[in-house]
Design a protein around this nucleic acid. Structure first.
Length: 427
RNA sequence: GCUCCCUUCGUCUAGAGGCCUAGGACAUUGCCCUCUCAAGGCAAGUACACGAGUUCGAAUCUCGUAGGGAGCGCCA
């Protein structure tokens, strides 16, 4: 499993959407693992799906990684010994491997159409069997293949899964795993448009880039034997794998759009501090030996890969808010001023800093200070009418005598109205 | 359907047979402090999914059950 090479971890997102918290956490843990052991962290963009991959997602992803402080030693914008780090540019490399597999009979062209495959799966499901590729094209003769080519049919390339194989590996978080190749159908490694499919390029790149520890979500656990068979067939070195529990929403379902903001970008826009997010993520599916705030620089030393969680972890925003509070406490007045981005005076910042978790929280206070009060809530109106007009005329009198000295004013008012506590201060 | 994974307070987690009358953090509640609200301090309640078994002894080991999740895609 894990060899003695220096630790090399990676994060391999596909630019088909925003970096959501679950992926950010995986990236973060991988980053920590490399930093902890003086290894390297690679960023690789898995953009072989030309339909869904977009440049703007790629750019946002990179910007958000940087914002979180997850810097990489190899990858886009900085290069490295295994360049290029965008899979869209690695076609030539994949092609040689496809040819190798095909020439050894370890992969074969498949001419089945999407409709045929769909139908086949449906039939299998109905008869209570696992929906696996039936192997239709596996035993085509040379003549039959030539005939299909002549008809202009496009072919995908399928990996011919060897029979009666036991695939074993030790997962870094789940321990020993054992799968049977007979349970696995032949799968696509090259689409009919010539691009590589995930199982293939993902595994092959990890191996050739020298990745030693692949950290990814639990959803890939049962995919691992496929990738292992592929690497074995190619005679390529296996990386070690570790599968962490998924990040889920309040309802226990994997984090998605309907759980509100889930992308790092959204939290960034709401004014969450990267350090707060990192501190929160540090405790999700990971048992730390410290409960308090950790500076980014101290996190690698406290990261314990052997304490990565198997069970899904629930994302709970109040807990994020706690770290955010600690983060705000740690900022200087000047830092808070720039964070609030609203040209507030240092005095104002000092006044409200303990009442502000997000920049938006400063708004009501700002309105009060500027004398620009927001409309009153029903509850507030109730308090005011309960106090009665005589209270307020007394207050005006007291104000005239005490001017702007709040202590003096409250003292006078207390004497004249005989009120104290909430009855005095609420109005 | 088949294969695999998971299950300790509301939430994140500690716990690898006796140290557990199960610890910490967040949240909640109460109290203190206080010129209101906060902030801060202190305190409290709440959990080993269930059932068998192994053992002198089980949250920890085994087997079942239930519940949840993932994979079985020319998506990653």
């Amino acid at each position: 499993m894990f060899d003695s090479r220096p630790v090399v971890t990676r994060f391999a997102p596909s630019p088909t959407g925003s970096l959501h918290l679950g992926n950010a956490r995986t990236a973060f843990f991988s980053h920590l693992w490399a930093r902890k052991s003086g290894g390297r962290f690679i960023l690789r963009i898995e953009d072989t799906d030309v339909e869904r991959s977009q440049m703007r997602f790629r750019d946002e992803l990179i910007a958000d990684m940087r914002w979180l402080g997850l810097d990489w030693d190899e990858g886009p914008e900085i290069g490295g010994p295994s360049a290029p780090y965008s899979q869209a540019e690695r076609g030539e490399f994949y092609r040689t491997l496809f040819e190798q597999l095909a020439s050894h009979g370890q992969a074969y062209p498949c001419y089945c159409t999407a409709e045929e495959l769909e139908l086949s799966r449906k039939l299998q499901r109905m008869s209570g069997k696992p929906p696996r590729y039936a192997g239709t094209c596996r035993h085509l003769t040379g003549a039959q293949r030539a005939e299909r080519e002549a008809r202009g049919l496009k072919a995908a390339l399928r990996f011919a899964v060897p029979g009666d194989l036991v695939i074993e590996f030790t997962d870094a978080v789940h321990g020993p795993q054992r799968f049977l190749s007979n349970d696995i159908g032949d799968f696509i490694i090259r689409r009919d448009d010539g691009t590589s499919a995930f199982f293939f390029c993902n595994a092959v790149d990890d191996s050739v880039m020298g990745v030693t520890h692949v950290l990814r979500g639990d959803d890939h656990l049962t995919n691992t034997p496929r990738q292992l068979m592929l690497l074995d067939a190619l005679g390529m070195r296996r990386p070690g794998y570790g599968h962490i529990g998924l990040l889920v929403g309040a309802d226990g379902a994997p984090l998605s759009k309907r759980h509100g903001s889930t992308s790092a970008h959204e939290f960034r826009e709401r004014g969450f501090l990267p350090a707060a997010i990192l501190n929160h993520l540090f405790h999700l599916g990971h048992a730390s030996d410290v409960d308090g705030w950790l500076a980014e620089a101290d996190m690698p030393a406290h990261f314990r890969p052997e304490h990565l969680g198997r069970a899904p972890a629930r994302f709970d925003e109040p807990q994020l808010a706690h770290w955010q509070k600690l983060g705000v406490e740690r900022m200087t007045t000047e830092q808070i001023r720039t964070w609030l981005a609203s040209d507030d005076s240092p005095d104002f910042v000092e006044l409200v800093r303990h009442n502000v978790v997000l920049p938006a929280d400063a708004e009501p206070w700002r309105a009060v200070v500027q004398g620009d009060l927001p409309p009153l809530a029903p509850q507030e109106l109730r308090v005011i009418s309960a106090a009665g007009p005589e209270f307020f005329s007394a207050a005006v009198g007291a104000f005239d005598q005490s001017s702007s000295d709040l202590k003096q004013l409250t003292k006078l008012l207390k004497e004249r109205t005989g009120r104290k506590g909430p009855e005095l201060f609420m109005p």
